[in-house]
Amino acid sequence: MILERLKTIVDEHLIYEGDLTPETRMVEDLGADSFDIPLLIDAAEQEFNVLISDQELLKIRTIGDLISLINKNEEAGG
């Protein structure tokens, strides 16, 4: 479910090949640069009503990393 909602966000911002999966890499597969990533995170924060810290943001390499953070922050109450 999170993946599907993330797909809507990613599709609005970036162009990529194949399916979006937890293994999809932000830079290599999505072509995201250091300006795209904060935009995606902002959109994800709004969509899932969570707050992702800048330190956490540094560690995001894949869509799976982002899903884990959303899960963790949702459990912690945003």
Partner: peptide, 11 residues
Amino acid sequence: IPQFIPGLVIK
């Protein structure tokens, strides 16, 4: 800083 993140730069 390993990556440019505006909020991190300010902090």
